[in-house]
């Protein structure tokens, strides 16, 4: 058994991104850059879970597309509302 495989790598990456996002939110006042960074990292986290934990990367094409579209659309609204 591999002690540190792909799943473990994903798990620790997701934890690292979460802590990074929190640090951004706590240390910097709300700015367009912080919002964009948070939105992009949320997208990345979502896509990681869809591809590696849900294993949709090699599963049904339309389910994968729907899930990916969802996790791209809603974080994108964070970026859109930053400039409104």
């Amino acid at each position: 058994m591999k002690p540190f495989g792909k799943m473990e790598y994903c798990w620790w990456t997701l934890i690292g991104i979460t802590l990074f996002n929190t640090f951004l939110g706590e240390q910097f006042s709300s700015s367009a850059l912080v919002s964009i960074l948070v939105a992009l990292t949320v997208m990345f986290k979502g896509l990681m879970i869809i591809d590696h934990f849900m294993e949709l990367r090699h599963a049904h094409r339309y389910l994968r597309l729907m899930m990916r579209a969802y996790l791209i659309f809603f974080p994108s609204l964070i970026i859109v509302t930053t400039f409104l």
Partner: peptide, 9 residues
């Protein structure tokens, strides 16, 4: 999705 909306941003 909920976490950044309600706790970070």
């Amino acid at each position: 999705l909920i976490f950044p909306l309600l706790y970070v941003l």
